[in-house]
Design a protein around this nucleic acid. Structure first.
Lengths: 355, 355
DNA sequence: ATGAAAGCGCTAACAC
DNA sequence: GTGTTAGCGCTTTCAT
């Protein structure tokens, strides 16, 4: 009773031992119910005896559509995308797919190559969190190759893709309203160097809300375009000279830099200056003061993107659509809150530490 | 000039158009030099005309050994393993492999299933960062399935696998020496609930060094076994009652909790109490005070593990071996440093902020 | 309810 | 140098 010629038993080995054909074993393995029970028993026993396991790769080669999904994120070292990857992994698994995870290391050229590679693997669908936007190199390539997929997180609406993103603009408007209502008339916004869609949406969301609700608000903008240390000095200079009463950081790194800048200037927060950051992190609850932040709904983001992808795979002619997930503004020690406050977004004040 | 029957051109389409056989195209694609230059040209043109791309899956099915490597880590949300995954991705790519990344979500049962799955895919080799240790479910399964691979990061030496890890024990000894030389006689060590090999090595490394060099040092140990908030209260109670002069946290979360506990008790750091944490993070340079830490050499860890794996794939009978990578103790504000200090490990005092 | 046969796209042995 | 042939391990008609 020897195996074909390879190390590992194939479906034919199982078939031979069970006294049926490979086709029947294949059916058994795929849950086809119309199999004589004696055969089922024989097959089961043969599988156990051999320790047989289906080779997903071989199946995928034969199948019209492969059971593989691709995920491309800008950076796996980033906790946010790490969390996204974690969720996707579970979701893909639950849906019977393998997930191929890759990261573009914040390079659009690499993003392009990764999309190409996903295409090479003929993945059934791809979730792309682009480096830049829905019009970046990767998204274009997906169209060019006719690949199904959804765009995630640094995107606005697109007419070629379904996109899933956080409501950056709305969340920033909420931040603006919060600061405005407290009475801040001069806010400095600090943003990342890259011109990612989300950063721009955050900036514009704030500006538009200010223009509408607080026309007198003075808004400064500083962008980190070189070294972090240089940026910190620029920031310190601005704080010293212009004396804004609040800082809104559009990205985690900026939030960190702002705190260190405050400390070096001897600025007390929230007494001398207030701070709100976009995107939460564990350490932000531990700094002195703890940082008020816009919390992004990572899990919901992943789920929406995934469900949308499955829907696209089901119905290739689905409508192209933008999904927006709402954020939550969590106020902590870095903002001096007045007695009453109300905003369109959920606001949680000094929550229990979730470490 | 029609393609076989599939959407995408196959190697046969290229062959037909170029007027050669598929075998020749295959050779061309794999860099075989002995091809008539007119044929090379024709092949190149056919490939361009069709937009042909090699299907790695089909090739892998045929090949004796697949060009896929597996990476299993405990948690992708964890920056440390995110960084590991990032490096591995690049290394695998450079070596001509696809990398399949999966995370066990800190569950040994899941780890087992993931190893099984890597086996199903017949990956050429697997890098496993186990949930528990070199004797966990995943490592056992690898042996059972005869899978080649190396174990990474929560491991000591094993006689079934090559293992790559940080010198936890040595780094902790260095921490012990540092604290002892400063004059601390009562140190509280806080550890994670899980009984991971690294946590145990860190604890023992400290204890052994203390036993040898500072026999009078009083060492308390507190383990986080339930909720973080409960743990913080236990910690606060210990600090208040036992009054240790230094805390050594074996894990990031513990470091965070220690800082908040200090603040709530009104303990000034480093005046009233010193703190050293194992494993660095960006925010640790921003807290007040900044946290002294043992920095793990992530990049070197990944490289060593990867190189070791390649060596194993080359020479199946290589010697089983433990690779230890040295850590670096970085002293920041949370430790009150005396004038002179020397240790076996590199010590960097108050470095420039790298944000 | 089952099996024979064809083939997914590629590679490898070997003959020419 | 190049082509022929024979699969890799599986799925999928389609006939029985």
């Amino acid at each position: 009773m020897t195996m074909s010629r390879s190390e590992r038993p194939s479906i034919h080995d199982v078939a031979r031992i069970a006294g049926v054909s490979a086709a029947t074993v294949s059916k058994y393995l795929h849950g086809v119910k119309t199999i004589k029970s004696t055969n089922m028993k024989n097959i089961r026993e043969a599988i156990d005896a051999l320790g047989y396991r289906l080779d997903p790769l071989a199946g995928d080669l034969r199948r019209e559509r492969r059971n593989i999904l691709g995920l491309v994120v800008p950076d796996l070292e980033n906790e946010f995308f790490g969390a996204i990857a974690c969720r996707m992994e579970l979701l893909a698994e639950a849906a019977g797919y393998s997930l191929s995870i890759a990261s573009s290391h914040e390079s659009e050229e690499r993003e392009l190559r990764l999309i190409q590679r996903m295409g090479d693997w003929r993945v059934a669908g791809t979730i792309l969190a682009p480096v830049r936007s829905e019009r970046g190199l990767g998204a274009k390539k997906m169209v060019e190759l006719g690949m199904d997929g959804v765009l995630l997180d640094r995107v606005e609406s697109s007419d070629t893709h379904c996109t899933v993103s956080v409501d950056n603009s709305g969340a920033s408007a909420s931040v603006c309203r919060t600061l405005g209502e407290i009475g801040h008339c001069h806010v400095l916004i600090i943003g990342p160097s890259d011109v990612s869609k989300s950063a721009r949406a955050r900036l514009n969301g704030f500006r538009n809300e200010a223009a509408q609700s607080f026309p007198d608000m003075n808004i400064g903008v500083l962008v980190l375009d070189a070294d972090a240390d240089i940026f910190r000095e620029e920031l310190a200079l601005y704080l010293k000279v212009e004396k804004p009463t609040a800082v809104f950081s559009l990205f985690q790194k900026g939030t960190l830099i702002a705190i260190t800048a405050f400390r070096r200037l001897g600025l007390r927060c929230p007494e001398d200056i207030n701070l709100i950051g976009f995107d939460d992190a564990e350490w932000m609850q531990v700094t002195e003061p703890s940082v008020s932040v816009v919390v992004q709904p990572v899990a919901r983001l992943a789920e929406t993107a995934f469900k949308t992808l499955l829907k696209i795979l089901d119905t290739p002619n689905g409508t192209v659509k933008l999904h927006l997930e709402e954020c939550q503004l969590v106020l902590r020690g870095s903002v001096s809150l007045p007695k009453t406050h109300q905003g369109r977004f959920a606001i949680e004040v000094e929550p229990k530490l979730h470490i």
